[in-house]
């Protein structure tokens, strides 16, 4: 189990190192979800505790807004609860949760009739430059993060979600393709275009 250091005053959150698209061995989260799918109501808290930070961050990276991500995260777990009977036995819960979270985000964008975020609109950043970073390093980190946030917001949903899944969520290409419902080649192409745009913007910002 990995314990992630939260903000000051908050409760440490344990995140299981569930393999996604790699080893077939199931982790505690997967077993908890399986128990919940079989009717063990107490297992939901364990699933939520283990997955919610990850899903929240994923949704925030997609939407660029913490408040939207919070709402969508709640919706995601509600949908997971309602769809628990369809959770496949012996499979990892993480890709399944990502797929449902993505559906929530897509439904949110459709209801708002917006496929691109307005750059900087309501965006909130949690930039982590490290506890021992100097003021200059912190400022550089924040500046870079702002550039990344702006470029991500300008990308199409398709490119943004492919890049986010590969770069920040740690999914394999295979797993990302499964979550997005596209081919592995399409995932690579979308992520590559996003990466090129981000790298060019960062290079320009640092020059």
């Amino acid at each position: 189990m990995n314990t992630v250091q939260p903000a000051a005053g908050a409760t440490p959150i344990e995140v299981s190192p569930n393999p996604v698209g790699g080893s077939a061995e199931l982790g505690p989260l997967d077993e908890a979800m399986s128990r919940y799918a079989d009717g063990d109501e107490t297992a939901f808290a364990e699933v939520f505790r283990g997955l919610s930070p990850r899903i929240q961050c994923f949704l925030q990276r997609l939407s660029g807004r913490r408040d939207v991500a919070d709402d969508l995260m709640q919706e995601t777990f509600l949908r997971m609860h309602r769809a628990r009977g369809s959770f496949a036995r012996g499979r990892s819960v993480v890709p399944w949760a990502y797929a449902i979270a993505r559906n929530c985000y897509i439904d949110h964008t459709r209801s708002r009739s917006k496929l691109r975020l307005a750059s900087g609109e309501g965006a909130e950043l949690d930039v982590a430059a490290g506890p021992e970073a100097s003021a200059e390093e912190a400022a550089f980190a924040r500046r870079s993060a702002l550039v990344v946030e702006r470029v991500l917001a300008g990308l199409t949903v398709a490119r943004r979600e492919a890049f986010v899944l590969l770069r920040y969520e740690g999914l394999s290409v295979e797993a990302a393709a499964q979550v997005l419902g596209i081919s592995e080649g399409a995932v690579k192409l979308r992520a590559f275009h996003a990466y090129e745009a981000l790298r060019a913007a960062l290079r320009e910002g640092n020059s």
């Binding site: 930039v127 993060a145 770069r167």
Partner: peptide, 8 residues
Amino acid sequence: IPDPVGSL
């Protein structure tokens, strides 16, 4: 490419 959201 840095992460605009930060760690978990």
